[in-house]
Amino acid sequence: MDEKELLTYYKQTGDLNTLGKLYAPYMSLLYGVCYKYLQDEERSQDAVMQIFEELIVKLRGHEVENFKSWLYVYARNYCLMQLRKGKKITNVDIEDNLYESEQQLNQSDEEDWTEGDFKKLETCLGTLNNEQETCVRLFYLEQKCYRDIAEITGFDLNKVKSFIQNGKRNLKICMEKK
């Protein structure tokens, strides 16, 4: 069975062996994503297992077109949620965040991203100036609005918009070069 068939079968039956077959190929990729954010081997391993447990329920209720992209976004947001918990920030609704991210991925015409693409993106983010990188990360990775970014960073609202626009353009140029 291919990935879509496994996903459909899991949604119909709730068979954990099927979910395991769907999840197993991505465990090392997810560990890398979790480690990038959590910076701790044990927490990252725990996160990979916790994400699997959450998928038992989440996948049966969500329409997922591209499992790999959806799973990457879910893992990233899971890690961000863990980091927020550590900072005692509780006013963020992660479910809405996940749903919006999933919808953005499903509505876009993106090709399937490989682990190399995500590494390239992370590398290119590092080439941006500090203001652009901060604003791009807050806007795209943490789904903050312009106003929230301005409050967090202390930048003027128009500067935030400019940093995001220029950062996005510079990211695109960097990604195309690599």
Rank of each mutant, 00 (worst) to 15 (best):
N158G: 09
E102F: 05
K159V: 07
T90S: 12
I152S: 09
N106H: 05
D96E: 06
Y146C: 04
E54V: 05
I51E: 02
L121D: 09
E131T: 01
E131G: 12
F118K: 06
N77W: 06
E133S: 05
D96F: 08
G154D: 09
A47N: 02
Q50C: 04
E110S: 15
F155P: 07
K68L: 07
Y99E: 12
E122M: 04
N97L: 15
D96Q: 11
L157C: 01
S162G: 08
K144T: 06
W70K: 01
K58A: 15
Y140M: 14
K119Q: 13
L71P: 00
Y74F: 15
E100L: 09
L138S: 10
T127M: 09
E63G: 13
D117K: 08
L59V: 15
N66E: 05
T123E: 07
Y99R: 04
L138I: 03
R147H: 15
D148Q: 15
R76F: 06
V160Y: 07
K58F: 05
K159W: 10
Y99P: 03
Y78M: 13
E100Y: 03
E115T: 14
F155R: 10
L55W: 03
F118A: 07
D112G: 14
R137D: 12
V136I: 10
N130D: 14
E100K: 05
Q103S: 08
S162R: 14
E142Q: 12
Q50V: 04
K58D: 13
Q82L: 13
V92D: 01
G126D: 15
R76P: 00
L71C: 07
L128V: 03
